[in-house]
Design a protein around this nucleic acid. Structure first.
Lengths: 193, 193
DNA sequence: CATATATACGGAGGGATACTCCGTTTAACA
DNA sequence: TGTTAAACGGAGTATCCCTCCGTATATATG
């Protein structure tokens, strides 16, 4: 009742192996731009049956989240380091740029982000939280230092950025996103005293 | 060769009637949140065959665009009036708020906007142009008046806003979007001399 | 009104996908 | 080595998008 899991038995090795394979294949496919790849195909490439895929990931969203969960955590973890090396506002700017780069690297993401930042679904909950915690911290520091207005909702910034990422298909979207970072930072800064 | 169309014959009345019915039904469905409604179902509700639907709208996107084309035009047309009644920056702010309200009224829209503002497709071309022209004009005025930085790409602002609209599902998204308008405006303004 | 014909209609059907179900196989443990 | 819970695989079901083509009809004309 207290433990997260009651391992009456060690998890089966083939189960873990297949799960891992699926994640690797899916990540590769997504990164290659095959956003809409059929799940049957993912299973085939991983050398497992479609039934196995669905046992590990109850649907497409679950798979996407699992793929990007680790990476999103990594992104969140980068925040403290940036905060230590830069003044608050610049740390925030740097992290937002990192966020854009991250999206650029792993195309798509957008659909995943939709769940993370805005969705009503309980899915993505954990990843969304760590991401929110990261930017919350950065913004809080900036506010404390007096460099940023107090009435900024950190998630708003993330939403705008994630939103732009939905247009990642168009040419020059990345430059567009980085310009937007500057605008958002400038618009969030405290007016000169 | 010069005219847009060579009406060797008057268009058939049943054709126009069915097209209109399809648009009405589709708009109602979209506005009701049935974003992913099957096109077969749209045809059924309109009392026409699926073949008829596809003859009028070559695919889902075409239908969506047709539904929102008129309304987007109306939004674009609102710009001049605002420009006449407000100082440049405030006109821009007002128009962006209007944009948010518009999205709020017609839910979804987001998928349509994706094509409009960012898409690579030639679809949506016309509506996208008028929308772009509207905000271009507003921003240009603000820049001329010296109230706004010169290196603002108007479309960036629209992209951010449209992006946030993708999260229209979450609670409080509208407030979030309006806060974002303020941040974007503030971030785009010229630094105090 | 009758005839001709361009235009539009309807819906069966092809192809693709998401997801389910269940009989079979296998890894873990005693 | 035997038992059993866990995992496997893939055929099957349910939807959807979109195409194709034979049929019906609105418009124009004699």
């Amino acid at each position: 009742m207290s433990a997260v899991k009651t391992p009456g038995r060690r998890p089966r090795s083939d189960g873990q192996r297949n799960r891992e394979r699926l994640l690797v294949v899916a990540k590769a496919a997504f990164a290659a731009g095959e956003i809409d790849i059929a799940l049957d195909e993912v299973a085939r490439r991983a050398g497992v049956g479609i039934g196995t895929l669905y046992r590990h990931f109850s649907n497409r969203d679950a798979l996407i989240e699992a793929v990007y969960c680790v990476e999103l955590d990594r992104l969140a973890e980068a925040a403290p380091a940036l905060a230590a090396r830069h003044p608050p506002v610049e740390a925030l700017r740097a992290w937002m740029i990192l966020f854009v780069d991250y999206i650029a690297a792993k195309q798509i993401i957008a659909p995943a982000l939709k769940g993370l930042v805005g969705g009503t679904g309980a899915l993505y909950a954990r990843s969304g939280d760590v991401l929110k915690a990261a930017i919350d911290g950065l913004v809080a520091s900036a506010v404390e230092s007096g460099d940023m207005r107090v009435n900024i909702e950190p998630l708003d910034l993330l939403r705008a950025l994630a939103g732009v990422s939905n247009f990642a298909s168009g040419p020059g979207w990345e430059a567009s996103a980085k310009r937007l970072v500057d605008i958002l930072i400038a618009g969030s800064q405290a007016p000169a005293p």
